[in-house]
Structures are given as C-alpha cells and as structure tokens.
Design a protein around this nucleic acid. Structure first.
Lengths: 114, 114
DNA sequence: AGAATAGGTAGGAGATTCCCTACGAGTCAA
DNA sequence: TTGACTCGTAGGGAATCTCCTACCTATTCT
C-alpha cells in the first residue's frame, strides 16, 4: 500500500525548503508559538506559511495544540531521528575518506577496493 | 538571488526521492558502477535514471569517472556530513524526553527504548 | 448580537518534478 | 569506415510545489 520509502520521501521533502527549515529552527530556539509569531519572520503571506506548516505536520515534524483562537505549533523532533538512522550506514564513507579536494585520489593505486 | 539555504535545499531535495536514495545505497553497498548496472535495479527507462544521477551530481552526492564508453558513478558522502551537522542542534530534542510542561506529549514515562 | 482576531481552505498561476520517446556524442570492435 | 554500445540531452506531458488573493470557521471581546 504505502509505496516504499513514502514516509522518508515526505520527510526529506519537508526539509527541502528553506522556509520550513527556518520554521523548525524557530520552534527549536524560541519554543512553541502560534502561527502569526512564526509568520512575522518571513516575507510571505500567512496562508502560504499555513501550507508550509501543513507539510511539516504531515511529515510529523510539528504538532499543533489549540489554545483559544490560536494554534500553538511545537517542534516534534522524533522523525529527525529517522534521518539520523538513515544517515548512519554512510557515516564511515566520510570518516574513512577524509580526503583532500584533489581529484588525484582516484588515481592512487591503493585506494581502489571494489 | 536567494542563495540562502540553496545548497541545503538541493541536498535535501536530492534525498527526497526513493529512487535516488536507492542509488546511493547501491553505490554504498556494491561500490562504484556504471549507469546500466544501476539502471538494472529499477523499473524505469535509462534516461530517467540519468536525470536522477544528474540531480545527485548537482547535490555533490555522486561523482562520475569516464572509463571508455562507460561512466562509473561513485558515492560522495561528504554532503551527508552537512546533513548530520544540520541535524545536530535538534538531537537533544529527541534524546531528552522533554521537560514536563506538556499535557499529552509523553504520558508514558516507561516507554524508553534501550 | 456584532465586530475583531487567529488561522485554515479553495482555487489559480507559474515553476518545477518525474516520467517518457527520440536523438546526438563518444567509444570500441570488425 | 561501419556498426554496435553506453550514456547524456531535448522536448513534451501529467502531476506536484509554492506562492498568491479570496473566503470560511471558530473564538474572543464589547
């Protein structure tokens, strides 16, 4: 049913936008806050930000809590642990090969271990 | 003009696709290989995979080396270190279990994973 | 009740994504 | 040189993204 990787697709796609990453940073640094307080930081109409919040919600990265006529958004960092888990098997590839920027490493005879 | 976060946008966007993440996994697990060897794993025409490889190249996640009429693609994991760096300030938000205050945030205190 | 406030939704425009088929540029083998 | 092989690019179409303006509901305050 759920196509393979659909959850990770949504997660990475949610992060692939500067505005949305900035929202996450604001929630992380300034704590839970209503929509308007978030919107004040962006050169963008509020409905557009609402849609970004929807994307973040559907990725599980934020939650909303109703407080009167406001909706308080809160960072939900759990999905980011999934990102780190995904990252983990690649870690040795940038730890082992702390190579210089040269293209000469490909020509090193002892570098190739296919 | 908005160079702000453009690099990270491209990086996360490159990862926001199951096919492209699978390409990275193949390069990680099976080592550098030509395009056709990669394409064999997907239900997709080769030119489409070529475009995925272009996205990965522009995100710096793979490099190509010409070998005769083949092009050998290789995993370049360095940008993934940037992802981990981006992730780092959020880490305490899923390691700490919050600081009380919530109402429904974590009603089960013994839900700890090992 | 009526007005003001907070914020989601509808629908559209323009750009981008992701797949396809055709075709072009190099490279190897006969 | 001719032909086969590898791979990228051009261009198109359907879907999706990201912004907008209008509009709607829900809540709070006179």
């Amino acid at each position: 049913m759920t196509t393979i990787g659909a959850h990770e697709d949504r997660l990475f796609a949610a992060l692939a936008n500067t505005t949305r990453r900035e929202v996450l940073r604001l929630l992380r640094d300034d704590g839970p806050q209503p929509v308007q307080a978030l919107a004040d930081h962006f050169d963008m109409r509020r409905p557009s930000l609402s849609e970004h919040l929807k994307v973040l919600r559907e990725a599980g990265l934020v939650s909303e809590e109703r407080a009167g006529r406001q909706r308080i958004y809160r960072l939900e960092a759990a999905p980011l642990a999934d990102v780190q888990d995904w990252l983990h098997p690649y870690e040795r590839f940038w730890r082992d090969r702390l190579k210089g920027l040269g293209d000469l490493l490909d020509r090193m005879p002892d570098d190739d271990e296919t």
